[in-house]
Nucleic acid binder design. Sequence first.
DNA 1: TGCAATCGGACTGAATCGATCCGATTGGAA
DNA 2: TTCCAATCGGATCGATTCAGTCCGATTGCA
Lengths: 135, 135
Amino acid sequence: MRLTSLADYAVVMMAAAARHPTGARLSAGLLAGETGVPLATAQKLMGRLAASGLLSSARGSGGGFTLAREAGGITLADIIEAVEGPIAMTNCVDGKKSDCALEGNCRVKPHLSIVNGAVRGALQGVSLASLAEVK
Amino acid sequence: MRLTSLADYAVVMMAAAARHPTGARLSAGLLAGETGVPLATAQKLMGRLAASGLLSSARGSGGGFTLAREAGGITLADIIEAVEGPIAMTNCVDGKKSDCALEGNCRVKPHLSIVNGAVRGALQGVSLASLAEVK
DNA sequence: TGCAATCGGACTGAATCGATCCGATTGGAA
DNA sequence: TTCCAATCGGATCGATTCAGTCCGATTGCA
């Protein structure tokens, strides 16, 4: 019931990125310096965020990253899913691979789906734009 | 962003326990059999649930567990916290030990507290009684 | 055409998870 | 009263995943 450090870092870095002018090329090193996240880890994270379509990446000298969408269109749920994989409270919620002994007739499962939806909703209700605002 | 298997099992076992008559002595073996959770793991789990005050335990022959409170007064948040520890999305939310490089002036932190509250609220909104209902 | 800067994927150590085993405690039967 | 069986409780062990580091691939610029 807690985020991994990676996801935590990713949120902070995305918020930092959102404070830069739209379209500016941001290198991993720049954001690492601004956030305090170790450079190598920042590279790994941004690569994963780019692979998920939240960032656009450009290779080579002068390359870097930019937000793939405007900050208002990116949610906490997007960032967390990019780093940690699908948001699912239990492994029987997100389908197929359910090695649960109760299998099909688990009475708890339908309720967990509701909870899962509520949690996900809370995460989708927070946009990156609101995270980037100065407090 | 996903429960550990232990917490998952704990929810299922508590739901199973809630379907028994109030005050009945339930052994770990009985509930393990009903839920399909490995016996040894079930013992460990129920011990942790008892330590957190959700179950009352009695040792010795004829001992076992009973719900410490009525099912309506136990929430998903209670069960998850008993098994996984405090619910906190990031380690800067639950106080003290924040080795975050941004320390005091992190602009993201206040928003994360809100998110954390929302998630926790979703978990507190589901009582064990509703989980135990037949679908 | 070569160089420097940057992204992208593979590898390694560490922490936590999940499961198992054995000792401690209690109630009941002989 | 004494012994035995049943049950909880804590300590131990292997496996999975996490977090971090390193090196190769790619691109633009001088």
